[in-house]
């Protein structure tokens, strides 16, 4: 088996973050002629995609936690020595 998932992610995520910051920091100097309409709406759509992605991740995690730790899950039966004895 290759590199474990955790290590791969722990390397990949900071690289993505650093790349974004560096790209903006070393971008062409301000004063460039741009079409505001295109840039602003492009940013808006990008923001919407990211907002919904984060929403999906958060909702997915909540669904997973609710399902995994539900009371009816056999793994959660008698979690402590005191439970289920009265």
């Amino acid at each position: 088996m290759g590199i474990p998932l955790r290590q791969a992610l722990l390397v990949a995520i900071p690289l993505v973050v650093m790349f974004s910051i560096l790209q903006a920091a070393f971008a062409q100097e301000a004063g460039k002629v741009i079409i505001n309409r295109v840039e602003v709406w492009g940013l808006f759509y990008k923001g919407m995609v990211i907002a919904f992605t984060i929403g999906a991740i958060v909702m997915g995690v909540i669904a997973y936690v609710v399902f995994r730790f539900r009371e009816s899950n056999p793994k959660n039966a008698s979690r402590t020595s005191m439970e289920g004895r009265h």
Binding site: A24, L43, T53
Partner: peptide, 16 residues
Amino acid sequence: VVVALLIYIGASAWDV
């Protein structure tokens, strides 16, 4: 993933 996405959109917004 959440932090990376937020930083990415923050950097893009700053650039624009």
